[in-house]
Write a protein that binds this DNA or RNA. Structure first.
Lengths: 200, 200, 200, 200
DNA sequence: TATGAATGAGGCTTCATTCAT
DNA sequence: TATGAATGAAGCCTCATTCAT
């Protein structure tokens, strides 16, 4: 194994271990000592790669979230859905289903949200990680235009949709409140469809 | 000053000081030492009244939030608004305006949200503090019924409204993102009106 | 109830409660707060009767131990045992049997021992509480003389007997080490008999 | 100085300082802060080596006690004492003389006794530290057998001897009660000789 | 006598970060 | 790069004792 692989190896071991511990015990209850112990790495090594626990956490969320959206859009492309509303719902539904499968990821993201309102618009931020890919933002803006949907400010509408989805789904998935996610979905999707429906 | 006033005095000084420090520096960065120093009270006295920092925080949020909603509904009653949608918007607008005036309260509440998704539906919870008053929940359910609004599940709709308002307003008020609150309001209110509009 | 009875009542409630808590949780883990709470007495009242926790403990041990020996000697008198060795063994056996029945008392006394070597000769000290009664010391000295037992220093022999009994019985009763008390007794009593046997 | 020496140095400085303070002021009155201050070591360093004050104390007692017995037996071997009773008395006398020279060690050990009756048979326990050396237990059992001494249970006899010696000597050495140690010794040794005398 | 709120010293422990190797 | 011993600030909490009522 070359020296670079060893390097990557340590960094990745730290990332993987941290993800595991963060989702298991929460960030606040995970010490750097915990992380390095579980990663079989010396304490000092941690600081070679990350400024502190929170930088590591941010990187982790960015990576995981980006993958989530990237996968959602890849899947969308494979499904040849033509109707705009259906596309948006498809993406949202894909993401929700993933979060249902990996609630620990949801918890991690939700814990991040807790840090401050700054990061509240998580989803929008994350898709910017890779500037080359078309993200949900581009998909939405283009779709509104192409479908001649009458929205005074599409960006604001997207913002409201994302905030609505994320804040309600935390509650629904993690606490079944006010309804389990599968029962909640119809209400949510109907509301979203109303927010972006074409004027007939 | 009687003994009870003295007692209340210390407890209130702790509450007031803590509110000041929590909103200024955040809860995590406020130590119990900070609080007692600023309140001119001995450290042990803190533990006479509160189990820990977080119990104090919870009391603070409950008190402040309850007052906010109570004031909103009192004001509503004084304004003789007959239309249901207008009533709902009035209450929401009142709360938003208060939070704009006291963004520190918004920050405190938002920090609470951080604790866990459990408390996410803050607003609904808080109005339950006083079981005698009619809260926004009762107002909404009764209004839907009286106005013959066709909602499959009014409770779920209220949940979505509250989550939408709270999550978007944090961002708008504190970060002017995606728009300053006054520019954002029309979009938000239109969306809400659509969610509860009567079928004509 | 007269004022003196109320006084006694509080003091006794403190003593009783403290004994209960000391034996249950140990002295170190029993706070004055614990004691006054359980005795339904105000904290300040404690200091009206006792200098501190340890004074209370000393009083408690003295009272309980004195009763123990007093009972043993009373019982001895009722049994008309004429042989000196038998008398000594009777008393020791009586005390051991009581401690077996109330190991919590044994624990309390043993915890006291822990405080320092000063109190090591517990048993001798305690019988001095009431100067009027004949104690085991008097019984022993008189018995040695009357039975013409050849001991260079009877006081030292009594001291050794008491230390031997107390230190081995703690271990035997509380930990069955090196043997359970009933199996250990024969060895112990034989050793003691040898220490005070008459020269034939 | 190599890294291991430095490490050992800190640990040993903590041990030495703690021994000094424990014996001077008692364990309860010695805070960890005291120890680290006197050892010129940071507070956190303490927790690198010891779980708490009591773990340090246990290590200290084990070390010191083991050395004491080890020295006693080494000295015995150099003195070519053939008679069994004389051997036992020699060892006991050696230990007593050492404790007379270093009463602080006696105090420390006596404080340990306080921890609970579990450790009551201190001496027997300690010699087990090094499984390779022959300890006083082995010496005793072997001696009883070789000398054809009629004891129903030699282990119980040894237990009684050790408890008798330790509990009486604390009192005699530290408080001259009931007699100064040198005056007490003859009585003690005679009693012990009687406990293990060969049947003629 | 009796109360119990208030005190604040005292002690414990964790952990992010540094730095010599 | 990598290590991990050492640091010491930072925070938490308990509790004996006092004192005004």
């Amino acid at each position: 194994m070359g020296i670079n692989e060893v390097k990557e190896d340590k960094k990745n071991r730290l990332l993987d271990t941290a993800f595991k511990l963060f989702t298991e015990k929460g960030i606040k209850n995970t010490s750097i000592q915990d992380i390095v112990d579980n990663a079989n790495v010396a304490k000092g090594t941690f600081y070679l790669y990350f400024k502190d626990k929170y930088e590591l956490r941010d990187i982790l969320i960015a990576k995981k979230s980006h993958k989530l959206f990237s996968d959602a859009l890849t899947s969308l492309r494979k499904n040849y859905i033509s109707n705009f509303s259906d596309q948006i719902i498809f993406v949202i539904n894909y993401v929700i289903d993933e979060l249902v499968k990996f609630p620990l990821l949801l918890k991690l993201i939700s814990k991040d949200l807790s840090l401050g309102v700054q990061n509240s618009t998580v989803w929008k931020i994350y898709e910017k990680i890779d500037e080359n890919e078309e993200g949900i933002y581009d998909l939405f803006i283009k779709g509104v235009k192409d479908n001649n949907i009458q929205l005074k400010n599409p960006e604001v509408t997207l913002f409201m949709i994302i905030e609505l989805v994320s804040s309600t789904c935390f509650s629904s998935i993690l606490n079944n409140n006010p309804l389990p996610i599968n029962e909640f979905k119809p209400y949510l999707y109907e509301t979203i469809r109303n927010m972006i429906k074409t004027e007939d």
